[in-house]
């Protein structure tokens, strides 16, 4: 089998990057984001990116790093409220934004990865999201047509992975990663723990290795928390 394992994020991105490419990025808030790959992409200096990601990171973390470095031309996201850099760039006209309802965004990526060019949803009917899009009545209910999305590269983060690219996510860090992994011409996965093939329980694999072209171990991870909320004992 062809080798999929790379020693670090920098080497895993070699030969993949080009200006103007579309990047599919897993994660919700800062949970499950491909932190090491984003940093390596910033260091590589690739520009004019279109990033498809539920959020845009925060100042100093996640896709916020690419925004601060001026590498992003357009974001396709559902919510970007946590990022001051984003607000500044947007108000200065240096950044385009296409808002998608969160479920529509997830389904666009799922559909794109599954070879489905378009689908109908009732989400957004009668709102600005539906403007200019085809609508159709099914069983008396109006639906709007949304397109599947396929990017040039997908960056995903998993908990465990094996050398053949099988991935297991941890808790709520799964989120957008499984769809993003399927929805690009090449998928690069960073994992907290990389194990030899055969060590993951086949029944517990979330993303089968067919979707993953390159894999690297990004440990150690220092996971940031956006809203640390606790209760008293």
């Amino acid at each position: 089998m062809a080798n999929k394992v790379y020693k670090d994020a920098k080497s895993a991105l070699e030969g993949v990057l080009s200006d103007g490419m579309m990047v599919m990025c897993g994660g919700f808030g800062l949970v499950g984001i491909p932190d090491k790959l984003i940093r390596a992409m910033r260091d590589a200096g690739v520009k004019n990116l279109t990033c498809v990601s539920n959020n845009a990171g925060i100042d100093g973390a996640g896709l916020g790093l690419l925004l601060e470095a001026g590498q992003v031309k357009k974001m396709i996201s559902s919510y970007v409220g946590e990022n001051k850099t984003f607000a500044k760039l947007y108000l200065e006209g240096k950044l385009e934004i296409e808002f998608n309802p969160q479920g529509t965004l997830a389904e666009r990526c799922r559909a794109g990865g599954a070879g489905i060019p378009a689908f109908y949803t009732k989400t957004g009917v009668g709102t600005e999201v539906a403007k200019g899009k085809e609508t159709k009545i099914f069983d008396g209910q109006e639906y709007v047509m949304e397109r599947g999305l396929v990017g040039d590269v997908a960056l995903v983060k998993a908990w465990k992975g094996d050398t053949s690219g099988n991935l297991v996510y941890r808790k709520a860090a799964r989120n957008f990663n499984p769809m993003m992994a399927t929805a690009a011409r090449i998928c690069i996965a960073e994992v907290e723990e990389l194990v030899p093939v055969g060590q993951l329980d086949p029944d517990h694999i979330h993303t089968p290795g067919i979707f993953v072209n390159r894999i690297l171990c990004g440990a150690p991870y220092d996971k940031q928390i956006e809203q640390r909320t606790i209760r008293k004992a």
């Binding site: 996201s77 559902s78 919510y79 970007v80 409220g81 607000a87 947007y90 108000l91 934004i97 808002f99 309802p101 969160q102 479920g103 529509t104 949803t121 009732k122 989400t123 957004g124 009917v125 709102t127 999201v129």
Partner: peptide, 15 residues
């Protein structure tokens, strides 16, 4: 005003 995005609200109210 600066727009933050709809998140999952449109999906929730529709579904």
């Amino acid at each position: 005003k600066m727009v933050k995005g709809m998140g999952g609200a449109m999906d929730l109210v529709a579904g």
